[in-house]
Amino acid sequence: MSTLFDPIKIGDIALSNRIVMAPLTRNRAVEGNKPGPLTVEYYRQRATAGLIIAEASPISPMAQGYLDTPGIWSAEQVDAWKAVTAAVHAEGGKIVLQLWHVGRISHTSLLPDGAAPVSSTDRVAEAATFTKEGFIPVSKPRALRDDEIPGLIEDYRRAARNAIEAGFDGVEIHAANTYLIEQFLRDSVNDRSGPYGGSIENRARLLLDVVRAITGEIGAGRTGIRLSPMTTFTAPRDSNPQALYGYVVEQLAPFGLAYLHVIEGETGGTRTPDAPAFDYAALHRAFKGPWMVNNGYDRDLAMQTVASGQADLIAFGRPFISTPDLVRRLKEGAALNELRADKLYGGGAEGYTDYSTLA
């Protein structure tokens, strides 16, 4: 029987425990969309996690959707990330980078030459994004042409290579929270025809093409993926999420990925008994590889879930923001720090690198 504190190997990456720091957007990049010295310290403080999944990082200038998010498309960004990965590795930790394209969850003020965001559709999302003016409604997107998609896949491949060059132990493909890949997956958003629209097989094509490109570039053992079958963060659910995500996971299983990371229920929501039914266990059985779960886990539930074999790893989000030494506190049953919610997005050290640890 495994415990939350036992080591585990996921693909090519050996972890000291099964506690994962989830990817968390903090909007503190410096000029050039680079991680700065504060970001180095932020991740160094949390390196006792078995695995850190660094914050979602745009794969290209057109992939950005929020102010001051650190990217992974330029040589300068790669060099800046090297300081982060070196700091985590010096503390004995492991860290992967989440590769991000926001799709239609963006604003023209954040994109090159005021371009419109791109998506599977030209329908505007009922959502807001974080800009210099604060949170404002997203801009109307344009639908990507089929002949533009090979270039998009190449952006993902190049970003994965850049992440490895920056010293990351691997990457996580962000296919969750209704960003670009999930805008193609869901029939509630994807209204296109052709090879990337219509049937489940066609709507899943972009995701599988991206997985093929990245695993071909850096290896499946250094590639994870994140899904969120039931979240309605910026878009309605698919009309048949069980069929859609069941197909996706069946297609992912043969790749031999390092892990599959599933957000259970609503992103950032509570674990409520009245949530719509979804059979996550069926996906777990179909995948067979390392299974990571996320959303509202506390110490007891996390320990129970790993001990029972329902999951191999537990990802914690906000607890890792407020409590850098979360692994120790979970082990000892110690209380966590209180989260300062008003300091989540943007700013400096306050609410970022100044949380206390146990003496």
Rank of each mutant, 00 (worst) to 15 (best):
K9F: 06
A14F: 12
T25V: 12
A29R: 01
V30L: 07
N33S: 14
K34F: 05
K34A: 09
P35A: 05
P37T: 03
T39I: 13
Y42W: 11
A54K: 00
P61G: 11
P61N: 11
Q64P: 02
G65I: 00
Y66N: 14
T69P: 06
P70A: 13
P70C: 10
G71V: 06
I72F: 04
W73Y: 15
Q77A: 04
V78A: 02
A83M: 07
A87V: 09
V88Y: 03
E91R: 15
G93C: 07
I95M: 10
V96C: 12
L97N: 03
L99N: 04
L99S: 03
H101M: 12
V102L: 13
H107G: 02
H107M: 02
S109A: 14
L110A: 04
P112Q: 11
A116T: 04
S120C: 01
T121M: 05
V124F: 05
A128S: 15
T129N: 06
G134E: 10
I136Q: 10
I136V: 15
S139E: 10
S139L: 09
D147L: 10
D147M: 07
E148G: 11
A160E: 08
R161T: 15
A163T: 02
I164C: 09
A166K: 00
F168W: 04
F168N: 00
G170P: 00
L180S: 02
F184H: 08
D187C: 07
D187L: 09
N190K: 09
G197S: 11
G198K: 05
S199K: 10
I214H: 03
T215R: 01
E217S: 14
G219F: 05
R222M: 06
T223E: 11
I225W: 05
S228A: 15
T231P: 05
F233V: 13
P236T: 06
D238E: 12
S239M: 07
Q242N: 13
G246F: 13
V248H: 05
Q251A: 14
L252R: 06
P254A: 12
G256A: 12
V262R: 00
I263Q: 02
I263N: 02
E264N: 03
E266Q: 15
G268P: 12
G268H: 12
T272A: 14
F278L: 02
A281N: 11
A282D: 06
G289P: 05
P290R: 03
W291H: 06
W291K: 08
M292C: 15
V293G: 00
V293S: 00
Y297G: 00
A302H: 01
A307N: 11
S308N: 11
Q310D: 13
A311R: 03
G317M: 10
G317H: 09
F320C: 05
L326N: 02
L330A: 05
E332C: 05
G333Q: 09
A335Y: 01
L336M: 12
E338F: 09
R340D: 15
G346K: 08
T357L: 13
A359M: 11
